[in-house]
Simulated assay, not measured.
Amino acid sequence: MGASGAPDAETRKRIRDEIAGRLAEAEAPPKRRGHAVANLAAAAVALVLALGGITLLLSKDALPGDPLYGIKRAGESAALGLTFDEQDKAKKHLEFATNRVGELGELTRQGASTGAYFTGLADFETDLRAGVSQLTAIVTDQGGQTRLAELRTWARQQSDRLGFQVGSAPAEARDKFAAARVLLDKVQARTTDLGSRLVCYTITTGSSDELGAVPAAGDCVRDPGSPDAVVPPVTQPPPSSAPTWSPSPTSAPPSSVVDTATPTGPLAPPSGGVPPPVMATPAPVTKTPPPPTTTTPPPPLISIPPLIPGLPPIVIG
């Protein structure tokens, strides 16, 4: 086509501008691209958090064996990780164990499979051991008969609840129920034994088992500095027969027979004896008579006749 096929000036300018624009875009720093990637990442994180929150909310009522039950347990683990006080952690473990018992009761009403019972009972025992171990460690270090009494009451209540549920559970899961109740009985015995050793110098043996510190055995040497030591009541000494401030009793002088006859001569002591004691004459007791009482006669009455007729007289006195 020769020269007639060449592009005109306007077409050449348009092609030149397009090429220049692409070169400029390739040489520009990737600021806008990085900003777009950050926005996409933030949006993805927000979407994941939103979905996670919704999923966690939906898993609140999940039972063992449900698809969302694992997410529920993950949320409980996260709550434990955000709890830093050891006593609060122990309480959360026992709270989760209580929730497992309630879920087992719901499984009996729904007629769930045996595997769901196994999962719930296994998680119950896990939280039970962790809570009891942490709580007994605190009590051993700081004392606290009240904490042990509350734990013993809680264990007895959960054992009673499991006893009501075992009759409706599958036959294959009843042995697992029995094992859980045996563990609760051990918790009650552990709290009793540990409580009896809190006032001793030696509280534990230094070893631990599935429920925490093992109480020591043998004689108890009482520690008066223990916060759980009972101060014995102060007993008053029995009163003596005679007060300490009273004078000691003296022996009365021997009685003697006095001759009432009129002596005719001086008294002489009996031969080979001691003269009788001379009794001192007591001093006469005089009483001062009371002073005479004088009575003052009342003042005479003064009567003034009425100043205005019709009024009574005025009497003074």
Rank of each mutant, 00 (worst) to 15 (best):
M1Q: 07
G2Y: 00
A3T: 06
S4L: 09
A9I: 07
T11L: 10
I15W: 08
R16H: 14
R16F: 13
D17W: 06
E18W: 07
I19S: 13
A20N: 12
G21K: 12
L23N: 08
P30D: 13
K31P: 07
R32T: 14
R32F: 06
A38F: 05
A42R: 09
A43T: 09
A44P: 05
A44C: 11
V45T: 13
L49D: 15
I54D: 15
T55S: 12
L58T: 01
K60N: 14
D61P: 02
D66F: 02
Y69S: 05
G70L: 02
I71Y: 04
A74R: 10
A78D: 06
T83D: 13
T83C: 14
F84G: 00
D85E: 07
K89L: 11
K91Q: 10
K91S: 11
K91L: 10
F96K: 03
T98W: 03
R100H: 15
V101W: 01
L104W: 01
G105C: 03
G111A: 03
A112S: 13
S113K: 15
S113W: 04
T114W: 00
A122N: 15
R129Q: 15
A130I: 03
S133Y: 03
T136L: 08
T140Q: 14
G143K: 04
G143A: 04
G144W: 03
G144D: 03
A149F: 00
A149Q: 09
A155L: 02
Q157P: 01
S159M: 04
S159V: 00
D160V: 07
D160R: 05
A171Q: 10
V182M: 05
L184M: 01
D185S: 09
K186S: 13
T191V: 05
T191S: 09
D193V: 00
D193R: 09
L194N: 04
L194S: 06
R197P: 15
C200I: 01
Y201K: 13
T202E: 10
T202P: 00
I203N: 07
T204R: 08
V214W: 00
G218R: 03
R222V: 14
S226F: 04
S226K: 06
V230H: 02
V230M: 06
P237W: 01
P238F: 02
P238R: 07
P239W: 05
S251C: 10
P253M: 01
S255L: 01
T262N: 04
L267T: 15
A268K: 13
G272L: 10
P275L: 07
P277I: 10
M279H: 09
T281I: 10
P282Y: 00
T286L: 10
T286H: 11
T286V: 12
K287I: 01
P290G: 04
P290Q: 05
T294L: 11
P297I: 01
P300Y: 08
L301C: 07
I302D: 05
P305Q: 05
L307G: 13
P312D: 11
I316C: 04
